[in-house]
Structures are given as structure tokens and as C-alpha cells.
């Protein structure tokens, strides 16, 4: 039986891959090889009391890193010498197990994902200064806008509501001490906590 799936636009190409295609596909593996080799180099510096017959604390990491580098080298070689593009002709017809890593929609929206990651990082950096309330309202607001939600008034209301719900759940229900911020933001946080009955 065949799990019919739409074809990815970048995958069903009939033309043979170019050198640049191969390089692009190999890049993650090159990167992992470099990191792996560096970590293998670091294992030589592990300091321990060498007893007779002991294989040392580097044995296991080395085993794992050798396997990782070996797999990457295999994949780089495969991509360089044997890869003819991602065509499906070789795939079994009775493949009943879906490919869970495949995403037919592709990853075109790198800017949006990067902006979302940037918003999370900015949130964590400002959290100690703005406090949980102000920082979270700003974060949820900006996150929803980055994600493309058009109605700003709704975004503002939801950001405020969600922040209050989170404050209540984490401060009042499971007693987590969340940052209150500095200066006027601390005052604002304390006022909101009082409003929610958090003592």
C-alpha cells in the first residue's frame, strides 16, 4: 500500500544535481564532522587516574564520536559520488511507515522563524529588567505579530490575558518565583501580583 503524499517542489527534480547542490546538501555533515573532530581532539585531554586495565572516561565519547564522524563521512561520500537527486523511484511501494522527518511544505520562511527566535532571545534578555508581566506582554504581542496575526487590538488583549493567566498559574498555583524586574517595572509587577492575589 502506498501512503500517497504530495511531492515536494524541491525534491522531484529530474535534472542531475549540480556541484553546488551536492555542496549545499553536504554542508550540515561537514559542520558535524568538524565539531566531531574537535570534540575527539578534546577527549585526548581528559584528565584521570589511569588504573591498570581501565579504558578511561574518553572511551565512550570516542566510540560515539567515531560513529558520528564515520556516518557523516559516509553521507558526504554518498552525496558526492552516488546521489542523483531526491527522486522516489527507489522507494518501496509498500512503505507503510510514514517518513516523519519529511515536510512537504518546505522551510521557506526562514526570516519568520529567525525573527521568532530573536523575539524569544530578546524576551529572555529583558526579563530581569522588565519583570515577568511587562516582558511577557511585549513578547506575546511581538510573537503573534511576527507570526502574522493581523488584528493588533486582539493581539494586545490576548497578550494581556495570557500573561495574567500565566502569572496566576505559575505564581499562585505552583508557587514559582518569577522575576519582578527593576524600578518602575518592579512596581508594575508588584501591583499586578496584588491584583491576582499573589502575596
Amino acid at each position: 500500500m502506498t501512503a500517497s503524499r504530495p511531492a515536494s517542489s524541491d525534491q522531484q527534480t529530474d535534472a542531475a544535481p549540480t556541484f553546488q547542490d551536492r555542496l549545499k546538501r553536504s554542508l550540515p555533515y561537514f559542520l558535524i564532522v568538524c565539531v566531531g573532530l574537535y570534540l575527539l581532539h578534546l577527549t585526548r585531554g581528559f584528565d584521570y587516574d589511569q588504573a591498570a586495565g581501565s579504558i578511561g572516561p574518553h572511551a565512550w565519547p570516542r566510540l560515539v564520536l567515531f560513529l558520528m564522524v564515520g556516518c557523516c563521512a559516509f553521507e558526504i561520500l554518498r552525496l558526492a559520488l552516488f546521489w542523483n537527486g531526491d527522486r522516489r523511484s527507489g522507494q518501496a511501494d509498500d512503505d507503510v511507515v510514514p517518513d516523519l522527518t519529511e515536510d512537504d511544505a518546505g522551510f521557506d520562511n526562514l526570516a519568520q522563524a529567525s525573527a521568532a527566535l530573536g523575539a524569544i532571545i530578546a524576551y529572555l534578555l529583558t526579563l530581569p529588567y522588565l519583570g515577568f508581566f511587562a516582558a511577557t506582554v511585549t513578547f506575546i504581542w511581538s510573537f503573534a505579530v511576527i507570526a502574522g496575526y493581523p488584528r493588533l487590538f486582539t493581539v494586545t488583549v490576548v497578550a494581556l490575558s495570557l500573561t495574567l493567566i500565566f502569572m496566576f498559574l505559575f505564581m499562585k498555583v505552583i508557587y514559582v518565583s518569577l522575576p519582578i524586574g527593576m524600578g518602575p517595572f518592579a512596581q508594575l509587577s508588584l501591583w499586578m501580583m496584588k491584583l491576582l492575589g499573589v502575596t
Partner: peptide
């Protein structure tokens, strides 16, 4: 809407881990 859901998931992830060891 997915944007609100995503923001809530991120918040839960951040607070969930923070709540474990502060």
C-alpha cells in the same frame, strides 16, 4: 489562531523549565 497557540507553547516551555529549578 496558531500565533497565540505558538506563543502559549513557548511560554509553557520557558516557564515549565524555569519552574523546575528556578
Amino acid at each position: 489562531p496558531t500565533p497565540f497557540l505558538d506563543a502559549a507553547i513557548v511560554m509553557f516551555c520557558i516557564l515549565g523549565v524555569y519552574a523546575d529549578r528556578n
